[in-house]
Design a protein around this nucleic acid. Sequence first.
DNA 1: TAGGGTTATCGTCAGATTGACGACAAGCAA
DNA 2: TTGCTTGTCGTCAATCTGACGATAACCCTA
Lengths: 225, 225
Amino acid sequence: MYTPSDFPPFAVTVDLVVLTVRSDALCALLVRRGEAPYRGRWALPGGFVRESESVDAAAARELVEETGVSGLHLEQLATYGEPRRDPRMRVVSVAYLALAPDLPVPVAGTDAAAASWVPVSEVSALAFDHARILADGVERARGKLEYTALGTEFCGSEFTVAELRRVYEIVWGVSLDPRNFHRKVTGVEGFLEATGETTARDGGRPAALYRRGGASVLYPPLVRG
Amino acid sequence: MYTPSDFPPFAVTVDLVVLTVRSDALCALLVRRGEAPYRGRWALPGGFVRESESVDAAAARELVEETGVSGLHLEQLATYGEPRRDPRMRVVSVAYLALAPDLPVPVAGTDAAAASWVPVSEVSALAFDHARILADGVERARGKLEYTALGTEFCGSEFTVAELRRVYEIVWGVSLDPRNFHRKVTGVEGFLEATGETTARDGGRPAALYRRGGASVLYPPLVRG
DNA sequence: TAGGGTTATCGTCAGATTGACGACAAGCAA
DNA sequence: TTGCTTGTCGTCAATCTGACGATAACCCTA
């Protein structure tokens, strides 16, 4: 009915673009490769999809393994399948984008020598085609902040409007008017949910604390700069 | 260095969601399967990725084979990799979205018994998980029309504002005010390029003909109904 | 050849949204 | 108490949107 020549065998992997905002910079989670090829180079975390798991499940599994945290937002980014992107064999990689709050130091994975948060502006010479995947992920994240409520994923469970604004400023690399930003995000139905509490952790007048609201799309969208 | 158990072999395929607007309906290109499994069922066109071609190239090749036309807009949609989505073996499928003008009758593919444009509202019982892939493609197309200039891809090389408006109305399933739509699309810089000619093919007063402009993103976006 | 029907295009106007920015509130430190 | 800092509310002009009136330019038919 069908023969092996009908479907050349591929290896299928997942690669993760995990982004966070910390120390006033947009950072990506990278691992240093412990094995050839590209031994010693920085790369995106990822791994082979197992025989009995879905591709999405493989991505979720790797994400928990790398960050030690579950429940993070995870979405498919794109699939990369150039014939020679891995020198060993034909590999098709499904990339995922995850947005995380400022997590503690990442866990060193099983097959990675080290894991670290690296500001995306300082990333250079990644293994394979991971530079392009990372760039695609950053661009997707920037776009997502405009018309979805995902900016809150970079914050903790409770946050102030100013903290959220700094996320936008850092991810987009622009500065936003605090008063207009405040009016906008508190005005969009379902974006933020007031907790009733305040905090003075940034000095100055105490700010109201909010939680993520139920809305996932923002209409009208926020606008960059 | 590595053993077969590290990377279980997968078959990798591409599936195409090819959409067009014809006879006042949003239609998808479907083929009737000539082989098991799902023999006789409608399915999305697609096929195996060859050993020496990239996944993107495989999608482009299939698109030309199925439509007989090259140069259509083609973009990655998503990748589907549930373990049992193909009963024969583990298959990961990369789906692509293509938008086409009203093409002549599609060409019957090599391994498909028949190919046809089917209104998406009348599609039922597709093979594999193709119903979900088609739904994802339609939803993506609807969204793309809001903030990109891709609506023009459904039109021929020259078209009137009213023809473009009907595309939006059919894809979104809403009705739009002709006067406001006209103001909007002719006002966005780079969206439409006047040819200087007119046509009266719809009866009534002759309408100005336009070509696609260079813009790919629409700012501000169009809004659904 | 004068209407009447149809579609295209321009104009108007009120309401909503945006961007720039003034003003005041509420904490901390000297 | 005086500043300094950050948060929040208000104002105002410019712009955009949605609803819709009016006119233009073709076809058809009487």
